[in-house]
Simulated scan of single mutants.
Amino acid sequence: MGVWAAFPFAIWFFLAVECVPLASEEARDPARALPRGITAAMGVLLVLAVLMLVFTSGAGGSEAMSASGNPPVEALEVAGAPDALSDVVNYAGLFGLVASFFSIIYAYSRQTFALSRAGYLPRQLSVTNSRKAPVLALLVPGAIGFALSLTGQGAMLLNMAVFGATVSYVLMMVSHIVLRRREPELARPYRTPGGVATTGVALVLAAAAVVATFLVDVEAALWTLGAYALFLGYFAVYSRHHLVASAPEEEFELLAVADEEVR
Rank of each mutant, 00 (worst) to 15 (best):
L254M: 12
Y120L: 15
A99F: 08
L136E: 13
S246W: 14
E253G: 09
Y228E: 01
V3C: 10
S66W: 01
G119W: 04
H176I: 11
S68L: 01
L121T: 11
L53F: 12
A6I: 05
I144G: 09
P134I: 10
F55N: 05
A27T: 15
Q153E: 14
P184A: 10
A107Q: 03
A23C: 04
L255T: 12
L115H: 09
D29L: 06
G200V: 13
S239Y: 00
V135E: 07
A155R: 01
G154V: 01
Q153T: 02
E185H: 13
L45W: 03
E261Y: 13
I104M: 11
L53S: 12
I11T: 04
F113K: 05
A64L: 10
M160W: 06
F231Q: 12
L34P: 14
V44N: 00
P30H: 07
V135S: 10
L230H: 06
L139E: 01
R32N: 02
M42P: 00
V211E: 10
V3Y: 11
T198R: 03
A118I: 08
N90M: 13
S62N: 07
Y108L: 07
A114I: 10
E219D: 13
M173E: 07
N159D: 15
L115N: 15
L94Q: 01
L76D: 10
I11E: 11
N129S: 12
D29T: 04
Y169K: 06
L115A: 08
D29A: 09
P8I: 00
A227M: 15
L46T: 14
E26T: 09
F101Q: 08
N70H: 10
S126V: 05
F14N: 04
P8L: 02
A256E: 15
P122W: 05
V174G: 04
S62V: 15
A221M: 06
A133S: 11
A258Q: 09
E185N: 15
Q111E: 05
R32Y: 00
T192L: 10
G154K: 00
S103V: 10
G58P: 00
G200S: 15
I144C: 12
V98G: 00
M52I: 00
M65L: 07
V50P: 06
L85W: 14
A10V: 13
V162N: 06
I177K: 07
S130K: 11
L125P: 12
L15R: 02
I11Y: 09
L125G: 04
G37H: 04
I144P: 04
